[in-house]
Amino acid sequence: MSFQPLFRRFHQAIQLKRFDENAELVEKRDRVLKRLRENLSISFDWFNQGSYAMGTGVKPVNGDYDIDIGLVFDVSHRSYAPSTVKKWVYDAVVHHTTRVEWRRPCITVYYQQAGEAIYHVDLAILVKESPYSNALYLAIGKEHSAAAQQEWQPDDRKGFIKAIENKFTGEDAEQFRRVIRYLKRWKDEHFSNQGRAAPTGLSLTVAAYYWFQLAKTSWYSAADYDDFSATASLVDMIKRNFYYGRRLSLQFPKAPQDDVLARMTDQQMREFYQRLEELSGWLDDARRTRSTAPLQQAFGADFPAQ
């Protein structure tokens, strides 16, 4: 029994497609951008970022769809405090919906239905290093943070998006993105979406950037991809890179080159490793028994039974 047709069907079920749910997200994004243009006295550029830009989005288990955009202002990070520029954006959108939050890395605009968030748009606020440089800095800090808790952080998320885009080509790139989506759905099924207990989708993407390996049942046919083996191999590589099963360090490959898992506590790290062990066990059981039941335990009800 080959699991590949089932993984393909699973991918179809969880993939966030550009012209379905993402069309709704784009409409929400464009409404926010229109509001900004109407209410800001300073011009800005913008770009898509996150899973939408990288083509790795999954349908959320909790129904809260999101899209990330970067707003780039042509001002110097030496001339304004991060909170000043973030306040320009916050003030421009605060009355756009009933819920707008000032968060440490961004401003988030929520669209709600019956009091529940169904869409949100994350606005990352960036400035240029100079008119002659493409280097960007991200505004970090909460609304009332002391000066010492604010910073202009070097930011090359554009470079990371490009690196993901160039990592593989053609059908190889499609398998790369499919496996990232499988791990994101596993995360959503087995971790709380509150707080920092879960590895982020970004951290799983960074792990795949470093350790994903293509897998095929035959290297003579372009169609013979083996998503099961590619997923199992990546899970194994993530586990191997834990320091004695205690902590995993994942350096963002572009500026600011920080550890994208640094904010997880030691206890959260232990739980992350334990859940990876659990996932490995389910994958081993599926390989040994040729049963889909362990895969449904791993990836949820959207994984086909047969």
Rank of each mutant, 00 (worst) to 15 (best):
D226L: 01
W102C: 02
H77Y: 14
Y119T: 01
D226Q: 06
Y243Q: 15
I14A: 03
V32E: 00
F191N: 02
T84S: 14
H120G: 12
Q150D: 04
G195D: 09
V127R: 07
L202E: 00
R290M: 13
R246P: 02
E27A: 14
K239C: 10
P60G: 04
W46Y: 13
T265N: 03
S79C: 07
K167R: 13
D155G: 06
G50S: 04
S2G: 12
R240K: 14
R247D: 04
S221C: 05
T292Q: 03
A92D: 06
Y111T: 04
A163N: 05
Q268Y: 08
E21P: 01
I69S: 04
W219K: 12
S291V: 01
Y132D: 13
I125S: 06
Y220K: 11
Q49L: 11
N62E: 15
R29Y: 00
H77E: 11
S130I: 09
M1F: 09
S249R: 14
P60H: 09
D172W: 08
R287S: 08
F212C: 06
S280H: 05
M54G: 01
P256R: 07
S203Q: 05
A117S: 15
G63R: 12
Y110M: 11
T56D: 02
D74W: 12
R157F: 12
A173V: 04
T292G: 04
P294E: 04
Q268C: 06
F242H: 03
R104L: 05
P82R: 03
K162N: 07
D66M: 10
R35W: 02
K254T: 13
S41L: 15
F19N: 13
Q268K: 11
L202M: 10
D91P: 02
L261G: 00
T98P: 01
R263E: 10
R247V: 12
P5T: 05
A222W: 06
T98S: 14
V89C: 08
S41C: 05
P131S: 09
F303T: 00
I125A: 08
V235S: 01
T108V: 11
E174R: 14
R78S: 07
F252K: 03
